[in-house]
Design a protein around this nucleic acid. Sequence first.
DNA 1: CAATGCGATGTTTACGTAAACATACCGCGT
DNA 2: ACGCGGTATGTTTACGTAAACATCGCATTG
Lengths: 355, 355
Amino acid sequence: MDEGAAAERSRRRAKRVSMADVARLAGVSSQTVSRVSNGHPGVVAATRQQVLAAMRELGYRPNSAARALKRGEFRTIGVVLFTLSTTGNVRTLEAIASSAAHEGYATTLLPVAAPTHDEVRGAFTRLGELAVDAFIVIMEVHLLDAATVELPPGVQVAVADSNAGDRYSVVDTDQAGGSYAAVNHLLELGHRTVWHLAGPEESFAAQRRADTWRAALEDAGRPVPEMLRGDWSADSGYRAGLRLAEESGCTAVFAANDQMALGLLRALHEMGRAVPEEVSVVGFDDIAEAGSFMPPLTTVHQDFAEVGRMLVQGVLRQLRSESTEPGTTLVPTWLVERSSTAPPPGADRTDSAET
Amino acid sequence: MDEGAAAERSRRRAKRVSMADVARLAGVSSQTVSRVSNGHPGVVAATRQQVLAAMRELGYRPNSAARALKRGEFRTIGVVLFTLSTTGNVRTLEAIASSAAHEGYATTLLPVAAPTHDEVRGAFTRLGELAVDAFIVIMEVHLLDAATVELPPGVQVAVADSNAGDRYSVVDTDQAGGSYAAVNHLLELGHRTVWHLAGPEESFAAQRRADTWRAALEDAGRPVPEMLRGDWSADSGYRAGLRLAEESGCTAVFAANDQMALGLLRALHEMGRAVPEEVSVVGFDDIAEAGSFMPPLTTVHQDFAEVGRMLVQGVLRQLRSESTEPGTTLVPTWLVERSSTAPPPGADRTDSAET
DNA sequence: CAATGCGATGTTTACGTAAACATACCGCGT
DNA sequence: ACGCGGTATGTTTACGTAAACATCGCATTG
């Protein structure tokens, strides 16, 4: 076992083909191999072919460690995230990975087990040792705060889902715009006011959506009902829905995400409150399934793909210009009207919300 | 604050702090710094403290490229996948990333833009240059086949969602077991037969589920209805549902995933076919929202976390022992009974399916 | 026809780390 | 007192690549 492992290790070591090997076989210098490998000009076609043939024969593949060491860059972007259980994170990650790939960068995942300060700090410590030129954090900023001191200097950062625009380059969807559109849509349908099922307290996005909901109501001079709170899950939406169904005055609900809206719909259905005839529901996210809810959900669409793209562009720009540009970039959101909203029961006019 | 940041920035690019710098400040040799950095024994406490202090002062972080070059390994696992739009892939990736992190490995994403042969080949070519010790492929194998020749030698591979067990180490959920359980559950409720809404033809998983569905019916001596086909999306489930609602003989449907089941539920609802009173529906995946469908969906649970864990264990074992062990490992699946299934209309006895 | 210039290729070197080897020192036993 | 064993630390070297510099040869030109 022991000598087996040792032998295998040496075999693997021996197996590794280097430029020198290719150069020897092709009868050229290793520098020429390097030139061919990197597509540099100044290599005559015949030589190039010879080198390429030798590469193929030996199965040469460049050693990226050596390459990175020499060049001083890894061509890799690290992504720090806490969970892949929310649509937004997944969609954003997907866009990051493909944008990065498009730019010739690899994407390395740095999962943080739990969103505690210790965990985040630990992650950043590990991150300091990671083969990464820049990284993108998809996480609440109040956790980032504590970890800031640990951030390895010399690595560019961009942040999603955060309000740290004063210190980092932040890209986020237009939470306020979307929330405002959602609430106003309901008011315009004639609802007297709108209830809100918020996301967890720790979430910046949840807070921003709730704040905007409140502001929109106050702007319109409407009463602000008590806010309910969920944890993004459909179950928490269901529980909130059971309670809302008892509120006879409740004719419109703005849920902070689609999953909770799903639970809400089920609770309302089970309690015999028809959607949208008796109660209107608006969600947030526009997940792929939203159009197949019962009824199809009116919700706020977020362009996560664009967020990912902009995040990558952001860090790469920083990387190239060597400048950090704090600031927040907002990606537009818009309301997608489906069938879960309608004028409130007893409303004769569908277009006026004048009191 | 500003000049601090600026200073740091210029210091960074000008020269990254190396072991030599730390060694100079601490008044020791760089080798001693290396020993401290790697926690090697044989460094007296006083010296260690001195080195650590110097590291802190200079903000030293090891250069992983140099380290990888020297050690001959990257401590990184690459994951090749086509899409993050399916629950299974996302859950699996998440588990891979956290298992890998737990083992001290980073996870690098290699997205494949489209599941075409060319794309996959290109991905593997890029992958050959990637700083990766091993990789995991989450993709249909028939695409892998064409790319096999391109697979960089000396890199360990494990595969999910595939039937390439003869050549690679494959980990998959027990598709057959789950499908069998789903069909039998419906038969035992008293349904005469079960319809099937399959996933896309290209999908190995879809094929396996369909095959098992057919086999289970044949085993029980039941008629095999015409199979419907969707593309995993809720929309395709909806379209199939519209058609099924017209089939008066249809009392039980086994959908190949939960998203399609969702669309199915909506179509049946809109067509006035009550679930589960008139039609029973079973899904596959047990996505987080399945319990909040209307009605809550009976479905087959897949333990993607376990799949990810085993994939990582698999490649790491291969890496350490340098042996490739083809073979398929199945992770158990089980039926989660919720409220979307019931005996067929007109059935008096709920336990017997005898004709 | 020789000088010149430039394109093609080779040689040297440095990147930061860590293994392997080398040395210096200390305490101990005889 | 002397050497011996062992430990703490220093020195050398190699990992694979690519920039910088060096060289060679051929064609163009005065």
